Deep mutational scan, measured.
Amino acid sequence: NQASVVANTLIPINTALTLVMMRSEVVTPVGIPAEDIPRLVSMTVNRAVPLGTTLMPDMVKGYA
């Protein structure tokens, strides 16, 4: 099973992502692959992402 990116904290809308905000976890449904974490750093989220939420491609500006 592939690990996905999961919010390690509440990420407010329009926040630039940092490494400490994200962790990898095997979850269903599958979200952004964990190997993309380095690429996500400094990208911003377009909605509030609660703790434990899987990051989906449409949640990160410029990812999809």
Rank of each mutant, 00 (worst) to 15 (best):
S42F: 09
E25Y: 07
P57N: 06
I13S: 13
P38R: 09
K61I: 08
L55Q: 02
L40T: 00
S42G: 13
A48H: 12
S24N: 06
L10Q: 09
N46A: 10
V27N: 03
N1T: 14
N46P: 03
I11M: 05
T28E: 14
T54C: 03
V5T: 11
M22I: 14
L51C: 05
A48C: 06
G52D: 14
P57S: 12
V6D: 00
A48E: 13
L55T: 02
P57M: 06
A3W: 07
P38Y: 12
E25C: 05
V49F: 03
G52V: 02
R47Q: 13
E25Q: 15
D36C: 04
G62H: 09
P12K: 11
D36V: 07
R39Y: 15
P57Q: 07
G52K: 03
Y63R: 03
R39L: 11
V60K: 00
D58T: 14
N14V: 03
S24Q: 10
L55R: 01
K61Y: 13
V30E: 06
Y63E: 03
I13C: 04
I37S: 05
A64Q: 13
G31D: 00
A16H: 15
K61V: 15
T15P: 01
L51V: 15
L55S: 00
E35A: 13
P29R: 05
M43G: 03
T44P: 12
T18I: 06
I32G: 00
N46D: 11
R47P: 03
D36Q: 12
V20R: 15
G31E: 00
K61W: 15
V30K: 08
S24R: 10
M43E: 05
R39T: 13
A64S: 11
S42A: 13
P57L: 05
T28W: 12
L10D: 15
L17Y: 01
E25I: 10
K61G: 07
G31P: 01
L40M: 08
V6I: 13
P33L: 11
V27Q: 04
P29S: 04
L55H: 00
V26I: 15
V49K: 01
V45F: 01
E35W: 15
M56E: 08
I32T: 01
A3N: 06
V60F: 06
